[in-house]
Computed example of a mutant assay.
Amino acid sequence: MKRKNVKTFNSIPLSVLDLAPVNEGSTPAESFPKSVDLAQHVEKLGFNRYWLAEHHNMPGIASSATSVLIGHIAGATNEMRVGAGGIMLPNHATLVIAEQFGTLESLYPGRIDLGLGRAPGTDQATAFALRRTLNQNPEDFPMQVKELENYFADEPSGYVRAVPGEGLQVPIWLLGSSGFSAQLAAQKGLPFSFASHFAPDYMMEALKLYHDQFQPSHVLDEPYVMLGVNIITADTQEHAEWLATSQQQQFLSLRRGEPTKLKPPIDNIDDVWSGFERAAVEQTLSSQTTMVGDKGLVKEKLDALLEATKADELIINSQIYNHNERVRSYEIIGELME
């Protein structure tokens, strides 16, 4: 599941989740070089994989054309795995995804991951624009995953073939923020990544379902779990807390149904939210899976999370307004790795 020279924290690899943030006063065109720079930095630091997430109609997230950006990042790095965290499969024809990731795997062999989610990654109006229908049956997602696996098989059944794609065995992960994908990943013997960075309340339940129901497959002999975490760290506790106000403002805007670009840090977050809004944001950004502080505090919280969950890997999101501060945050995390 990891390349040979990857560094680890307490014997597990750490990875990066990038939403290609678009800062207030900036454009997506300015965010992409920053993603390339971050990917090159974290590869040197020994992070295991670099994933990009599909979102739509969000002015602060530039990774909507996820497979295109994956190719851009893979072309700018050397060994690190690059992939989707994830592709929202119901938004797409499975053949198209097979061809896109077959192309990526052909260009960058042995380096591409395909994480799959079943949510639209957006609001309902945008989901309609993407899919032209909202009549999605929950049973469609398992069928789509099966179709995708068939396109990548050595000897796919059916008349339609994915070229490129056929025979490439692109690694498939299932992603989730509830128990549905946990159970499906367990039944299919696939690796599972849980979105604990924004759905912490369901984390332990989903992990139990996955471990209890796991069935070995040709992909995995035993369960493999990667958890999403938010980490914002700096050389001092106070500075980290100041940097974290950008992420807090982002989640506040989502809570209000008014998504915005990533805003600069502010001195007093209590000036912009009500007590009710603060409680809602803090519930989403649980202190168990959102870690804000200096290196010592982050290490303490990582140790506690791993002790509680027995995760096999962590994937880290750091929504920090200033690019150099964001790179520095990952550098500090890198200092914790062996």
Rank of each mutant, 00 (worst) to 15 (best):
S193I: 09
F198K: 07
M203D: 04
L174Q: 00
M226L: 15
G165A: 04
S181I: 04
S217N: 12
K208F: 14
Q213N: 14
G158I: 10
Y159L: 15
S196C: 04
V160I: 15
S178K: 05
S177C: 13
D212N: 15
K208W: 15
S157H: 10
P216W: 12
S181R: 00
P156N: 11
S178V: 11
S193D: 04
L227G: 00
L174Y: 07
L190Y: 08
A186Y: 02
E166A: 09
A206S: 13
Q169R: 08
D201H: 09
V163D: 10
S157E: 11
F194A: 01
V219I: 13
I172A: 05
M204F: 14
L209V: 14
G167E: 04
D221M: 08
P191V: 07
P223V: 04
D221K: 15
V229L: 15
G167L: 03
Q215K: 15
V225T: 09
A206E: 02
L227S: 03
Y224W: 11
L209F: 12
A186L: 10
S177D: 04
G228C: 09
F192Y: 14
Y210H: 02
V163L: 15
P191N: 04
M226C: 14
E166V: 13
A182E: 09
N150L: 14
N150H: 09
P164I: 11
F192W: 06
H211F: 06
L207Q: 02
F152Y: 12
D212W: 11
L209P: 05
G179R: 05
K208C: 10
Y202Q: 05
L220D: 02
F198S: 06
F152H: 04
F180Q: 08
S178C: 10
H197L: 07
F180E: 08
F192D: 01
S177K: 05
E222R: 15
G165C: 03
I231H: 03
G176R: 03
E155W: 00
F192K: 01
E222Y: 12
D154G: 00
V170F: 02
G165Q: 05
H218G: 00
